[in-house]
Amino acid sequence: MTWFLFFLALLTFAFIAYPFYRKRLRHAEYQEDGQLVELLSKRDTSYSMLKELEFDYKSGILTEKDYKELESRYKRKAINILKDMDSAQDGQKIGDEIEEQVNKLRHNNVGKGSKVSDEIEEEVDRLRGEKAVNKQLDDQIEEQVQELREKPRYCRKCGVKVREDDVFCSRCGAKLI
């Protein structure tokens, strides 16, 4: 009985420690683009919403006028999400391309001297640095945008305060610049 329990403890330990000793690591599937996932789910939500609207209209819960109005509003929302997704995906694409190049270079490296590999690593660092610089630039832009956003906007025609993402003035309807 004692032996059985000892064996059990050993087995448990081995099972838990196994991942540390495994040579080939699994890809870290963790680094997902959180923003993109979020947008994808937002997009699905707005699509489901549009489908539901359509159905509610067809089964007579919404009147035609309401339906048209709500539909166009939610379509706008969906389009905005699509746009955001595209820009987020572009960002990720650049990152992916860099990583691809890195992998390619590493792959070529197999069997060659370490000097070459150092060169490659340098190259990699450079490429990565570029991305970092890009990111810095992005951040700067974001900051500026943020600054601009924090300043209240006013309509030039009638002077009413408007929201930062409005395209038209909510009172007089003038196009905002």
Binding site: E69, S72, R73, K75, I79, K83, D166, V167, F168, G173
Partner: peptide, 17 residues
């Protein structure tokens, strides 16, 4: 509501639509 219903008439992103 007011702003979006105005905006509808002009700016179109046909590609996205």
């Amino acid at each position: 509501e007011m702003t979006t219903s105005d905006a509808d008439s002009t700016e179109h992103d046909e590609e996205y639509e």
